[in-house]
Amino acid sequence: MTIVRAFFDEDEPVMLRTPADVAALLARAQADSREFNLPLFMQWYIEGSDAVEFGVGVNDDRGTLNFTGGNWPGLWFSQGDPDASEELLSYDYMSHERPVPASCEISFTRVVQAAQEFLSTGERPTSIAWKELHSE
């Protein structure tokens, strides 16, 4: 069984063990995002390893994912609307800015599904498309 440590808005991580745990945490993030009108970001790690980093962002009814590590070196982002702007959106990660290209946002429903897949497999989710971002 995979256990995920999710760093969101507290000093200690939220431990995710079931798909229901994932859904509850993301629903909480969605409610906070709506209340504060602020895109929120969190970092997830598999318990016992920091070899893979999974980033989950929630922006009301949209969100973004990123992944690095394991068999996927580099920084990979969820592929949203390819015609969307490359404007950078500011997601908040524990009072620190996390810039995300607008074209990397996907529906909140897809964020939840992919996050539950990550919990299940510990691997980069295959239920969404990814694109690698290169630094200029």
Rank of each mutant, 00 (worst) to 15 (best):
S78C: 00
E117W: 12
D50H: 14
S95G: 14
E132W: 00
S127E: 07
R98I: 07
V4G: 00
P19Y: 03
E136G: 07
M94L: 13
E10I: 03
V100C: 01
S85Y: 10
A114I: 03
T68L: 02
E117P: 10
C104Y: 14
E136P: 12
A23Q: 11
P101L: 03
C104L: 06
R110D: 15
Y93D: 06
N37I: 11
S78F: 12
S103D: 07
T64P: 13
L89H: 06
E86A: 02
L65H: 06
V100G: 01
S33D: 11
A51H: 14
R62T: 14
A115H: 05
L133S: 02
V22N: 01
A51Y: 15
Y91V: 05
G122I: 02
N59K: 12
G80I: 09
V111T: 15
V112Y: 09
R124N: 08
V56C: 02
E123S: 06
F118P: 14
V100D: 00
R98G: 05
V22L: 03
Q113E: 15
Y45E: 04
E35D: 11
Q30T: 14
T109G: 03
A115E: 09
H96Q: 11
L119P: 05
A27N: 10
S135V: 02
L88H: 11
A31G: 03
A29G: 05
G48P: 14
D83M: 04
D9M: 10
E117C: 07
Y91D: 06
S107N: 11
L133I: 05
G48F: 13
A29Y: 09
N59H: 15
S120Q: 08
T68D: 10
C104G: 12
L38Y: 14
E105G: 04
E117Q: 05
R34F: 11
P13G: 05
Y93P: 07
P99L: 07
S49G: 07
A51W: 15
F36D: 06
V112K: 02
P39G: 00
R62A: 08
V22T: 08
W76L: 01
F36Q: 10
F67G: 05
L40Y: 12
R17S: 09
P125G: 07
A27Q: 12
G48I: 12
P99N: 06
G70H: 12
S127G: 13
V111P: 02
L25Y: 11
A6F: 07
Q43A: 00
V22E: 01
M15E: 13
A24G: 04
M42P: 01
V52Q: 10
G63E: 11
F8I: 01
D81P: 05
